[in-house]
Amino acid sequence: MPDEREISFKDMCARFDVTPRTLRYYEYIELISPRREGRSRLYGAREVARMTLILRGRRFGFSLEEIRQWLLIYEQKGSREQHEVWLALADRQLKLLDEQIAELQNARDDLKSLRDKTSDQVDGAD
């Protein structure tokens, strides 16, 4: 009998705006483990929380393997170890994002400079 707090596969996809293929893949690589009832998959609070963390991690640029390993740490060693690993991962990712921002800013500055020079040439040709 389904728990009232569990949600269906379809509802899980809708709640997190993911495709069924994505959700099945996350199950396949053991990021989430729904309870099965016949052919139905039911997702409880644990799976909803894990999905929230997975999608947040993806948004921050972490690989699925990094996320999987990080989630495993909680199960194997507890929250303190998980928090320490999280801080190291976050520091590394912040550095990478800062480098990407700098690269994008440089590309933007170069593009704007070239655009302005071209605009001046076009305006000067009149």
Rank of each mutant, 00 (worst) to 15 (best):
L53E: 07
D120G: 02
G38D: 12
T22V: 08
Y28R: 12
Y25M: 07
Y25W: 13
D91C: 08
V18Q: 05
N106F: 10
R58N: 06
E103V: 00
V48S: 03
L87E: 10
T52V: 12
W86F: 11
L114Q: 05
D120M: 02
I32C: 02
R46L: 07
Y25R: 11
F60S: 02
A14W: 10
R15M: 04
R115A: 08
F16M: 01
W70I: 02
P34F: 01
L94N: 07
E30L: 02
D98M: 14
L64Y: 00
R35E: 09
L104A: 03
R92P: 00
D17L: 03
Q76V: 15
D126T: 05
Y43F: 15
S119W: 01
L64M: 02
W86T: 11
R15G: 02
K77H: 11
K117D: 08
G44W: 09
L71N: 05
S8I: 13
S63I: 08
Y74N: 01
P2V: 13
L111A: 05
M1E: 04
R68M: 09
E84D: 05
M51Y: 12
G57R: 09
D3H: 12
Q105T: 11
R36M: 08
K10W: 15
S119P: 10
S63Y: 04
D17A: 07
L89D: 02
L53S: 10
S33R: 11
P2D: 15
Q121M: 07
S119D: 11
S8A: 06
L97K: 06
E6G: 02
A45V: 07
R80S: 08
P34Q: 05
D123Q: 00
K95G: 10
T22Y: 04
E99P: 00
E65G: 05
A49M: 15
E4N: 10
R58D: 06
R5I: 07
Q105G: 08
L111N: 02
I73A: 03
W86P: 00
